[in-house]
Write a protein that binds this DNA or RNA. Structure first.
Lengths: 224, 224
DNA sequence: GTCTATACGCTGATAGAC
DNA sequence: GTCTATCAGCGTATAGAC
């Protein structure tokens, strides 16, 4: 249902539309991510998309409409990582590790998406609060049930609050996209290296697995 | 050197200045924190400070100057928490616990300050990058030395990277100010309760202490 | 020192030619 | 469908009266 790219003749109505909207969405994610909603200008988005400014308004009505469109696209792929890994069918250790690696990969590959979301929530989520209080809310409730299964199986500590654990996981992983400028300054780098990313994943895995996983399930790495 | 408040007659030059500048800085922290630099308007700051718009420009030249002033004030108190608690004179467990509680208290009491900082770093820290790459950089290097002492004393796991541990600590604690809107939506609250904050501190303490602290130092709470 | 009135630039949005 | 030219409103900053 979603064939993309390849700019054919405009024989059939609305075919080049797809290519243009994708370019606009990509440019918008980049510009909104870097400057936030108010700091971004439609002209800069148009320039980056290689289109005249008026076309943006033709495809997506207002600036707010475009912003919402980008956000919804991001949030859709956002939840998939959790559904894949935080699932009762796999073990707690494997699940946590897979989820953390997926979130860290997302932070590295698409930092602008993470920053765009951060900007939105920082301002009180004016555009996506309804989504957060319904879809995301139910989603996290589902994750809590997964944790209950893991706890019942003895794969996870029983006295861990599901919601606050998720908040900490989000905070730790997304900070590597949102606050990367600060990290570069502290580490005296112009950009985070592959080694930095490996170390960051290693650290977060240690924090989560060594505290949320019962002692019985981990013996190999207590080298201190 | 820093006597404040009390609006006396303008017999001596520049006395009411103090009261006004403090009001302006407080209003600016609030407005910048809620809307970010570009989203904030000088008119709103003036209204909240109870002063005409032109006075703001009289005291602090441009909008950027005011923004920088607020940021520097925040960053000054920012580092004190770490200096107090992450210090070789006290034990690792007490130090981590004190630091986490201090950061979480700051996130609860002055969320606008945390959000203002987040907005700035999200945009690439255009105003405070020099500060981050000098003062903050050296500061974190000092914390790493504290951790080395704790490791040598056997109070902390030796295979924990100091920098990434700090990044995770910042991410977990500041997310409770920056992303509080998202948490309220997920938890179905209009505002985070005292119980929520207690649980958040408890969760973070567990994550840090149970993974960074050697097994010998903790026996009482392994109830799973 | 304080405040009102205003100038100027920037940006979102649209009308209308092609 | 596509793009150029233009409008209208907002927001920073300042000039100048008090």
């Amino acid at each position: 249902m979603k064939q993309a790219d390849a700019p054919p003749p405009e024989a059939r109505t609305g075919i080049p539309r797809r290519a243009n909207t994708r370019q606009i969405l990509a440019a918008a994610e980049h510009v909104f991510g870097r400057h936030g909603f108010h700091g971004a200008s439609m002209m800069e988005i148009a320039r980056e998309a290689g289109l005249p400014k008026a076309n943006i308004h033709y495809y997506f009505g207002t600036k707010e409409d475009l912003h919402r469109a980008v956000l919804e696209q991001i949030l859709a792929e956002w939840l998939q990582d959790a559904d894949t890994w935080l699932h009762p069918d796999i073990s707690a250790r494997t699940g946590f590790e897979g989820y953390i690696r997926a979130k860290m990969t997302f932070s590295r590959k698409r930092p602008d998406a993470s920053r765009l979301f951060a900007h939105e929530v920082l301002q009180g989520a004016p555009n996506i609060y309804p989504y957060l209080s319904t879809t995301l809310r139910d989603h996290v409730a589902g994750l809590a049930r997964t944790f209950d299964v893991w706890k019942a199986r003895g794969e996870m500590r029983v006295d861990v609050d599901a919601y606050h654990l998720m908040f900490s996981l989000w905070g730790m992983t997304q900070t590597y996209a949102d606050m990367s400028t600060q990290m570069c300054a502290v580490l005296s780098r112009t950009t985070l290296t592959a080694q930095d990313h490996d170390k960051s994943i290693e650290t977060i895995l240690m924090l989560i697995l060594d505290s949320c996983t019962p002692v019985a399930a981990r013996q190999t790495e207590t080298r201190s």
